[in-house]
Structures are given as C-alpha cells and as structure tokens.
Nucleic acid binder design. Structure first.
Length: 131
RNA sequence: UCUAUCAGCCGGCUAUCGCUUCAUUCAAUUGAAGAGGAAAGUCCGGACAGCAAAGAGCAACACACCGGUUAACGACCGGCUUCUUUGAGCAGUCAGAGAAAGAGAAAGUGCCACAGAAAAUAACUGCCUCAAUUUAUUGGGGUGAGGGUGAAAAUGUGAGGUAAGAGCUCACGGUAGUGGUUAGUAAUAAUCAUUAUGGGUAAACCUUGUGUGCUGUAAUGUCACGUAAAUCAAUGUUUGAGGGCGGCUCGUCCGAAUCAGAUUUAUCUGAUGCAUUGAAGGGUAGGCAGCAAGAUUGUGCCAGUAAUGGUACAGCCAGAUAAAUGAUGGCCGCUGUUAUGGCAACAUAAUGGUUACAGAAUCCGGCUUAUGGCUGAUAGUUUUU
RNA sequence: GGCCUUGUAGUACAAUGGAUAGUACUGGAGUUUCCGAAGCUCUCAAUUCAGGUUCGAUUCCUGACAAGGCCA
C-alpha cells in the first residue's frame, strides 16, 4: 500500500457545486503565489478536500489555451496533493479551495509544479495553525 | 523553377502516472470506447419543443433573370442577359477568363455638391422678326439649333425645310413598349409590323410579386425541496365582471364548473368565487429525461451535363456539465540544416522538428473566416533541349 | 449554448451622402509673471478593417475583427 502510492484525482475531489463555489468566493480567505492565486475556506459538507481550477478568459481568449493550462495545473496538483490530504484526515479537518491562474502568458509545467508545492505547504500550515 | 485552383492525408508501436463514459465484479479489479475540417463565427436554412384553441387587414422583415436539386434555404448545379478584361481581326464580330443585391426610373415623391446659361417646368445669353427712337439701344413676339462646364447635357449621322429654327419632315441607325412568326420547358434569341424618343439614382422613399406567427435545448417535461395562485383578518362586489385572436387595428369569439335551497325543470338566490388592503411567513437554482441509430458513415453499381437521387452490402463511431481525451519518456517512420564521400541518384555522421489553425456542449444542410507540411491533377510563367 | 447592442483625435461626444470631418478637456509651443497657477494665441492628433453601390461614403449594403450586455 505504501510502496505504490496512488495519485487519484477523480470526480469526488473536484469542486462542482455552484453553491459551495459561491460560498468560497464570498467568505473565503485568499493568498497568491505568482502566477497562481488561491481562495480557500475550511468547510466542506461531503469530502475532506475538494478543489477547483479556473483560468480567466480575459487573458486567454482561445479555449485551447485555457484548457491546456487547466490541465497543467490539475496535473501539478494531482502529483502534490497527497501530503495535504493526509494531514487533513489526520486532524479531521475539511477544506475546499479554488486555484485561479493569474498570469497573462502560458508558463511551463516545471514552474507551475514548483508553485503548486509552495501552495500545498502553505495550506497545510494555515489549516493546522488556525487551531 | 515559381504561382494559382481543386481533391486527399497528418503518423505508428510502447512504458509510468492519471481523466470521462459504458460493461463486468459484493468489492478491489479487469475490459472497451473517447475531439475537427473547420468542433470557430452564429451569417442563413431546417429537425425538435413550448406559447390552450384561433380569422381578415395593416405594419415589420426577407427574397426578386429562367429552369433544376433539396427536408429547407439568401445555399448548390445548369442556362440566359449585361458588364469588365485578354487575344485574333480593317471592321461587323469571334474565342477564353471573370463578375453581377440581375423585377420596376415609361406609376408617383425626393436628391444630383462644386462648375455650368441650364441637372430636367422654365429662365439667361444668342439667332430671327416687328415697333419706337437718342442709330445702337429699348420694348413685344417666335425659337430651343450655338453656349464646352461637368460623373452625367435632352436619340446619332446625312438631306430637306424655315424669317430664324426645331423629329418639323424624310433615309439609315440606337433605345424602349405593344402585337405576330420561328427556335427553346423558360429566361431569351432571330425576324416582321406598329407606336414613342421619356438623363442618373430603388445597397433614397417607394411600387409590384412571392413568402414568413413568436421564442429558443439556460426550450420543455419530470422527481425532490417546498412555496407561490396556499393561511388568517377586514372591506367591497356577485352576471354580463373579465378575457382571447401571437406587434397593431377591425370585426368577432369565449364568458365555464361544483354544491345547497326554491320552484315555473331551466331559471332564480346563496356559497365556493373575484378585487383591494393589512398581518405573518418564505427564497430555490440540485437530480433525471431532452441527449446520441441518424435528411447516419464507408464502398460498389445505376440514372443525370451537373447539383443530386436510387439501390446493394458492411458498420455503430465522444457525450462532459467550474466541463473528460492529459503529463513525462523510448523506438520506428517522415523531414529540415550542416559536414564527408560521390558526376549524379544516394550513403554515413552530427544536430533539430514531428508541427499550422485550433477543443465537442441538442442534432443536421450550407456560407464565411483562420490555417503549416506532404501527395496528385489542371492552368499560367521562367530556363534548357 | 443561445439572444442582442456598439465601434469617430489620448478621453467624452457631434455630423442631412457633398469644400480641408467639428466641440470640450488633455498633450506641445509661445505670450503674460521675479517664478508658478489661471487667462490668451497657435498647433499636433481620428472615422476598427476589407470589399461593394454611387460622380462622390463617417453615413447606405455585405463580410471580418474588437468591445460590452442579457438569459433562471
């Protein structure tokens, strides 16, 4: 079990409910690690962890570019999220957050991956430090 | 060699970590399938759904040579006419290529800057004539030939005619209408007779003909939640109150049902009802269907000039919803550049790329726009023989 | 996904199909002042793009591009 660590990112761990997204944006806290911005809220009724990804159509007009950036972010998140999930289950916390791509140009996978690691570490600190 | 047009294709296998749907399994798992020619723009046309039912006129909008294709279209195919351009020819004309929002300006209204006498009634100048007198001017009449400006100037040339002139008359033409004949399904063409001589603009208003109801899958249905039109109170009213005919008008249509009582047994009365005000209370946006077998895809044959249609066989081929088809590698294939060898084809090595435009969102038929590389065909061009 | 609206100087607006596209603010230069501000004078700067109709398009028509709005 430990030797083959899985990196699932299925339907259950995506933030889909329109109501919850509204709540996250109105009540949640935000910080940003360039080029990503995170809005998070320590609340989720169904799962321990749910996440959503968004790219503004103001910066990227073509649907192809938006989709490819979202795929990159999701890939980076998928590879790094296991620490966060474990910590949440350990402390029995619930979290839902949203990642927004904030740059005007498309960046490499390596940059986004580094950025994602920072975000995960900070989220672990925030959720544990609150209580 | 280059350019243009048309048609076709865009890699294959595999490793690790993953995504969506379906099937399977108690479950873990396992298996199968998974983006384009434009999926785009939303410019047209349909299918499908709702608006309970449902006239006439007007408005609004669209279209406009003829025939065909199609479920339908403003799309497509074929033809006609006009125009542009190239070539040939003395010329009439012929041939090739391309374009056309191509009904009506001879129903009416408007507009045509600047320039020009004048932009369509006419006037000015001029020409001719008569009268007067200051004998080179004025006034009356006739005329629409001359005025060289403009994008456009009152049908062109020649002759007759007249005081001067004028399609005023004649001949040959041009243009337009009407009526015949011939060819053609038709537009139209050729020809004959006759009438007229009226500039442009309808992508100005408009007229004629034809057609169109509106809204759109966030439609719509259904399940859950549960409220609205439900509850409570007060007041008023109780048969012609109100409502419909899709945007407007006309004319017209509906005007119900249930219960109780009374009787004239099809009427009356009352209530449910309707309107207004107040109180209390309340706020969802989730699931499923629509939604994946169809004007379907591929191949062959037949009909047709073609668009397209018919038929036989085979196939089932995305279905998400903050929205799947991805990330990192390897090998083969393809290909660019450089170096070496070779007359050349090519071979070897190094290095790089594997792409452009672009991501389904109810589904189809077109149009438009964005697009790199390769292959084939056709046309033109350059060089060599 | 669907349905609409609008494109004019740097900004906000105007224009009957007809001289060189106008007004205000802004920018630049000059004048005034000991120096500034304000004022005055002069000046730069635009019809989103491509076709078409017309003798002639900001205007009319078609297509593209861009910006903005709405849906229960």
């Amino acid at each position: 079990m430990k030797k083959t660590q899985r990196y699932f990112f299925g339907k259950e761990s995506k933030l889909k409910s329109r109501k919850l997204i509204q709540q996250v944006f109105t009540e949640g806290k935000a910080f940003s690690v360039f080029p990503l911005k995170v809005v998070w809220l320590p609340h989720n009724p169904s799962q321990h962890l749910q996440v959503g990804v968004s790219v503004s159509s103001r910066f990227f007009k073509k649907a192809v570019d938006r989709n490819s950036i979202k795929r990159l972010i999701r890939e980076a998140y998928r590879l790094n999220k296991n620490h966060l999930e474990a910590s949440l289950i350990q402390h029995d916390k619930h979290l839902s957050f949203f990642i927004i791509y904030n740059a005007k140009e498309a960046l490499d996978f390596a940059v986004i991956n580094e950025c994602c690691k920072k975000i995960i570490n900070r989220l672990i600190k925030e959720t544990n430090g609150a209580h």
